[in-house]
Each structure stands twice: as C-alpha cells, then as structure tokens.
Design a protein around this nucleic acid. Sequence first.
DNA 1: ACTTACCGTAAGTCATGGCTTACCAAGAAT
DNA 2: ATTCTTGGTAAGCCATGACTTACGGTAAGT
Lengths: 102, 102
Amino acid sequence: MAYQESLAALADPTRRAVYEALVRGPKPVGGLARGVDVSRPAVSQHLKVLREAGLVGVKPKGASNIYHAEKDGLVALKRYLDGLWGDVLQAFADEIEREKDD
Amino acid sequence: MAYQESLAALADPTRRAVYEALVRGPKPVGGLARGVDVSRPAVSQHLKVLREAGLVGVKPKGASNIYHAEKDGLVALKRYLDGLWGDVLQAFADEIEREKDD
DNA sequence: ACTTACCGTAAGTCATGGCTTACCAAGAAT
DNA sequence: ATTCTTGGTAAGCCATGACTTACGGTAAGT
C-alpha cells in the first residue's frame, strides 16, 4: 500500500511484465506464467509481492486463482511522484531566481 | 531516460533518499553524503545510476560537483504510470460490464 | 610548490532476492 | 474414488548489486 513497495515491486522486469499483463485484464496464475519465461512458482512469488504492494488482488474461482490489477498501489505511487514533481518544479524556479544574481 | 531505469533507480531506499535531497535543491556530493549513512563513494555510485536514468544532472563548480534534479527521468516515469492508470481504469470498466452477465 | 578539500573509479566482500525443483493442498473431472 | 488440473510454499542455488577501503586526479588555499 505504501509507494515504496510499489516502486520495489515494479522495478523488477519480469514482475513488471506480470503486472502489465494483469493491467490488460484479469488472468489466472497459469495464464500469467505462460506469458513470461519463468516457472509458475516464480510467478506465484511475484504475485505475492505485487499483492503486498496493493498493485493486484485475487479472487478464487474454483480451483484457479484469478488475479486482477488493483488501484491502491498505483495511486500511492502516482501521488508520491506528483509530490516529487512539484518539488522539482520549485527547485527549478529557485534556480532561475538564483541566476539573476550575476 | 527510459522509465525502466527511473523505476530501478528509485527502488533503492538510500538512492531514493539521495534523490529526494536533490529534489529540494542542488547539492555537492559531500553534502549529500552527510545526509545519508553510507560512505561518500557509495553516494557517488548512486549518483551515477540516477544520472543515467535522467533523474539528476551535474554542474562542476570549481573542485566540487553540484548535482541537481533533472526533469527527464521523472517525466518518463510519470508518463509510464499514467499509461498504466488508463489501462487499469479500462480493465475496471470491462469488469463492470462483465458483471452484468449474471 | 605543497598541502588540503572534493570527488570519481577499482577491487573485493557480502547480503538480498529472483529462480528452480520438490512437495503439498484443494477443487474438477471422469 | 481416483486422477488431473491449479497453485501456494519450502529449500537451496546463484547472480546481482550495494557497500567498503584504497587509490588517483583536479582545483583551491596557504
């Protein structure tokens, strides 16, 4: 749920690939594993990290678990970056001011 | 310059701390090192990663190197997340539609 | 000129984490 | 009831990467 976890979760390429697949629509673990070139257990582990970051959620559907993208983790990350963005703009403005002193 | 590098760069806590310090204003390497509990060379290595991601830039000022936040890397990351966000909303909309079929 | 401050790079150490195989549990199907 | 599919967890391996110390190089101060 915290932006730090979203950041760490999305930093890994294959985990990001799994997430991007889910962003296009809900899918079972097996389906996700087929889209990536790692084993199915590896995908399960990635899903755990994504789940703890609030980026995805699960709904059991019989024997299979259907994963889907969740808003929370992404919103947290977007908010964090927007905060940084504001500060960066401020820093730029400050620098313009400073350059007037020559 | 690519969002992948920004993601990887900001995923590390101490590197993120260095970046956040720069976002509040330009600083020399030594000053940055004093704000974090790792050695100065470690900070230099983090700055290299941040620089390659387009998140920071340098301006030599005499003997010291003044680092500052750069827009490019952050913009790239924000764009990527906005794309994801759009897809997530679409996926949610699709799911609402699907639930009408019961 | 010599020393001191500032910084980047090299080499080596060590922990983190991503991957695999093996195993186990639960639901579907026959 | 047994088999087959689906998937989470455990244990172990191994590469990546974050950190340290040591070194070299340039600019400023005296």
